[in-house]
């Protein structure tokens, strides 16, 4: 039975012979992300983070574009998470190349929305199988990375961003991008392709912080003192933009709409907070938001589910019992 199951599991990986990189499965992808070191009970990617809570205060500007209840004027609470890239839940905050914001809006029992956003505005590659090779190159070292990017001209916009990006001294001062595009769907059924960003309202210079948990300590102290606010900015595609290609930014001239403000009012260590239990699969969408056919976006559900299944099973088996947040 196990052999049969394995054969069926692996079948999709071999059942196509299209051009391009070898096809990988969700299991292979998560295996690569988690690497050789096990951190049972933790996320396989972006393992280190801190729970945040607060609310989104909508100004109603987006309500004509999407029927999602969230965009009607008013406030919707969220459970969120600020994290850094990597598989190690104890990694030093300041070493990570990417910072992230994830949100979960449980508007009602039938309408939930998960968002997973990162500091880069675009992906270096356009499909999950090439992304797998990019991660392999990153794990192999700088020479492999250089070789990888040379072979993938589609990474040019990502490299331009990476060349000028300056990490700030706070989670509160970063811009977090949806990267992938989605469709807003309004009450008349009209679709509009959009990307969005959470834009900071403070600037914090990169400091000479050195503590391993510097960013977590900074954001906890900052939110304890005062709320932290982001503008939720939507960029509307026009007919010439390709909403299915996450490597290409849309021109700055595209219409932008501020849907409201995201207000962070609390932090909790992740193992004590509500965010740890959540799979921030960005394909959990409310009525009024739809996924595009972007191959990276479409790959996220299966990969997130595999990571979630592994750590949930470990947690059920007691992996996190008696552990503190580290």
């Amino acid at each position: 039975m196990k052999a049969l199951y394995l054969t069926l599991l692996l079948a999709p990986a071999f059942s196509f012979s299209a051009e391009g990189p070898p096809r990988v499965s969700a299991q292979q992808f998560v295996d690569l992300q988690q690497g050789n070191t096990d951190f049972p009970g933790f996320r396989r990617a972006h393992a280190k983070g801190i729970c945040v809570s607060g609310e989104f205060r909508a100004n109603g500007q987006l309500a004509d574009y999407s029927k999602a209840s969230l965009f009607k004027t008013g406030a919707t609470p969220f459970t969120g998470r600020l994290s850094i890239a990597g598989n190690n839940p104890t990694a030093p905050d300041l070493k990570a190349p990417v910072r992230s914001m994830a949100l979960s809006f449980a508007s009602s029992r039938t309408e939930q929305w998960r968002l997973a956003m990162n500091t880069p505005p675009v992906m270096a590659v356009a499909d999950p199988h090439t992304f797998y090779q990019q991660i392999q190159a990153i794990q192999a070292g700088p020479a492999a990375v250089k070789q990888f990017f040379a072979a993938h001209p589609e990474s040019s916009e990502f490299l331009t961003w990476a060349g000028q990006y300056q990490a700030t001294g706070s989670f509160a001062a970063e811009t977090y991008y949806s990267i992938n595009a989605f469709y807003l769907v309004n009450a008349d059924g009209k679709q509009q392709a959009v990307r969005w960003a959470m834009q900071p309202t403070v600037s914090v210079a990169a400091t000479d912080l050195t503590a391993p948990d510097a960013l977590q300590q900074e954001i906890a102290a900052r939110i304890a003192a005062d709320q932290v606010v982001f503008d939720w900015v939507f960029t509307l595609a026009d007919a010439t933009d390709d909403e299915n290609n996450p490597t290409k930014a849309w021109p700055d001239s595209r219409q932008q709409i501020i849907a409201g403000q995201l207000v962070l009012t609390g932090t909790t260590p992740q193992l004590e907070g509500d965010c740890h239990a959540i799979n921030f699969d960005p394909l959990v969408l409310p009525d009024g938001i739809k996924a595009t056919a972007d191959p990276i976006l479409r790959a996220r559900s299966a990969a997130y589910a595999e990571s979630y299944r592994r750590r949930a099973k470990e947690q059920l088996q007691g992996a996190l019992e008696g552990s503190n947040n580290e």
Partner: peptide
Amino acid sequence: GLLMVTSLQTWQLTLL
């Protein structure tokens, strides 16, 4: 079920 838990293809979400 067996396909959708492994596949990273664009049709995975539809199948799910």
